[in-house]
Amino acid sequence: MDGRRKFLRNALAFLVSGSALGGVLKILPSSALAKEASRTGKWYGFGVSVDKCIGCTRCVEACKTENDVPKEPFYFRTWVERYIIRKDGEVIVKAVETKPEGVPESASDREVLRSFFVPKLCNQCADPPCVQVCPVGATFQTKDGVVLVNEKTCIGCRYCIQACPYGARYLHPETRTADKCTFCYHRVSQGLLPACVEVCPTQARIFGDLNSGASVMARFRRMNKIHVLKPALNTEPKVYYAGLDGEVR
């Protein structure tokens, strides 16, 4: 009686502690792994020069065309935000519409302190919270650092959409699965540039392998003061911004 009870208790303790330990180890951030991968092979990143963006939204249109994103203004793999910071401290932000606006603004408003455009896209985080929360492993990081969604196994629970701090994901209305920027993975694998980078008229967007020695990407990161979005969340974005204003979130 006593021996059996002891055995049961030990077995229970073993099971509980074992599963708890295993669980904790697996829950721990996978950033160590991510960084290791970044040293070998390709590790894609993206650069945005805020000072070069003219807000023409060629990128948004090209992205929607290239990736069959619904044209309705509720689904974006990339978009451009316009910031107007007024002297009284008020910050006005709008997503730039792809249709050219009717009459252009003429005289500059004297109440405006500064104003600029900021392109946004999936940050392809090195430590992606969307991948962490996906219950079925439908969203994952490729070995070259791109976060993809497997539309054949996504169950459409939208936990990843909630977990993305950047609003980069949406539920595709036709497939009913999560969808997001892939850095144009199909183009990149063929040596082409992502569609948005391809059509950007002012080189405000650049793309490349972060491991390459000499490239636009390398020079961009070398010659600019770089910032990423929401660094405090420790997602380690791979979309790098040069000349980013502190008001941009």
């Binding site: 295993g22 991948v131 996906c134 219950p135 196994t153 169950i155 936990y159």
Partner: peptide, 12 residues
């Protein structure tokens, strides 16, 4: 799939 390929990192 929740039972076949559960991701240990996911609370859900």
């Amino acid at each position: 799939e929740m039972f076949l390929t559960p991701q240990p990192s996911s609370a859900m």
